[in-house]
Computed example of a mutant assay.
Amino acid sequence: MIPMFTSKQLVALLLAVLVVGSLAGVATAQQGPSAGGTVVVEEGETFTGDLEAIGGTVVIAGTVDGNVETTAGTVLVTETGEITGTLEGVAGSATIEGTVGGDVSLSAGAVFVRDTATIDGSLEAAGGNVRLDGAVGGDVRVGAEDLVVGPNTRVGGSLEYNAESTAIDSAAVVDGGVTEVDNVGIDSPPIAGVPVEFGQFEGPTIPNWVFSGYWLLVNLVLGSIIVLVAPEFARRVTGLGTKKAVRSGGAGLLTIVGVPIVLLVLLLTIVGIPLSLAGGVGFLLALWVASIYGALVLGAWLLSLADYNNRWVALFTGLFVLTLLDFVPLGGVLEFAVLIVGLGAFALALRGESGHDGDDDVGAADEGSQEGAPMA
């Protein structure tokens, strides 16, 4: 079952794809758009004009006499850094330690405004973790999972926020008052030229169960195709997952750790960059397929407790149980365990292995049914 992603996690995923495909090496900021593994405006350097920067890391340690629009894994405005205009960015993490003369709009997994930071305009931030501990001349609007407002915070306007957990230090000064709101809309700059709305909560809210039901149907269709196209392979994967669960889990854990390392090594070479990008996309698709096999394994195991054997019922049961786990505490941990077992069984089956006593696997229902069980 593909896990439900929050908007912050989706942005992180987009950034991961972007960074994998980014150019290797170091690029120094220059007139016009800049791209590279690292884009830097050095301390003591002045960049005149608007800077559009894309890279694994974007560092502003000098002066940008204009606006900055960036998409990167990491964005840093150091204590010596100064942006005379606005700062807009999408990033894995964004940190401001220096000065921004205009407004700031950041969407990131983590946003930090340090106690040395000064933002003359307003601040809009959306992220998994947002920490504000500097000076903001205008209003502040935040949408986050975790919001921390530190003791050195000075806000000339109001603070509006929507967060799952909030800690506001009593020493923080907010001239316009602090308000918790339900809707926080924050517009982000385009990613690779594609407009993205991040943290947009305005309008009617779609219940989580609608998305869960949608993914249940999508995964059920994909699972049906998988079982119909390669029934014998599905039987082998199911046998491995149910009868060699420990071995499958170990293989899955090794795969989910090892493959990203290999892709990262490929990324460090010019020739390997296209292979790394293609491999990353392929690995994401493989994880999706493995999650379906994991659901099939889970369903088969649950049905075996009732001495019942039917691959279609097993597929639906496994996917349905994983859907319910979306609403259960620690359900994500159980979903990950099922994914690991499914991924490992999938990898072992690709190597030609199979579970012992394979004829008793769920897939054997292709030929008929057990007593009391319907035809598959």
Results as ranks from 00 to 15, higher is better:
360 D>L: 13
159 L>W: 06
11 V>C: 09
43 E>S: 03
370 Q>E: 12
213 G>Q: 05
218 V>Q: 00
58 V>C: 00
338 V>P: 01
126 A>W: 11
3 P>N: 02
173 V>H: 13
294 G>F: 03
11 V>A: 13
70 T>W: 01
228 L>A: 15
289 V>T: 04
337 A>C: 00
8 K>F: 13
287 L>Y: 04
138 G>T: 08
156 G>S: 04
272 G>D: 07
205 T>H: 09
352 G>Q: 06
38 T>M: 10
329 P>S: 07
287 L>A: 05
4 M>K: 06
339 L>N: 02
59 V>M: 01
154 R>L: 05
30 Q>F: 11
62 G>K: 00
300 A>R: 12
80 T>G: 11
245 A>E: 06
355 G>I: 03
291 S>N: 01
223 G>S: 12
60 I>E: 05
237 V>R: 01
263 L>F: 14
75 V>P: 07
355 G>L: 02
121 G>P: 13
109 G>M: 06
66 G>W: 03
285 L>E: 00
98 G>C: 05
353 E>T: 00
120 D>R: 15
363 G>I: 04
68 V>E: 02
371 E>K: 13
84 T>G: 00
376 A>R: 15
74 T>W: 02
106 L>H: 12
148 V>H: 12
285 L>R: 04
136 V>Y: 03
289 V>I: 05
372 G>K: 13
45 E>W: 09
362 V>M: 08
147 L>Y: 11
151 P>H: 03
21 G>I: 00
228 L>H: 10
360 D>P: 07
226 I>R: 10
209 W>G: 04
31 Q>C: 05
349 A>F: 02
301 W>E: 13
251 A>L: 03
182 D>S: 15
347 A>T: 04
192 A>R: 03
281 V>Q: 02
202 E>N: 12
326 D>L: 10
319 L>N: 00
10 L>N: 11
206 I>F: 12
114 R>V: 07
206 I>K: 12
144 A>Q: 09
291 S>H: 00
82 E>S: 15
271 V>C: 08
117 A>K: 04
72 A>F: 07
26 V>L: 13
118 T>C: 08
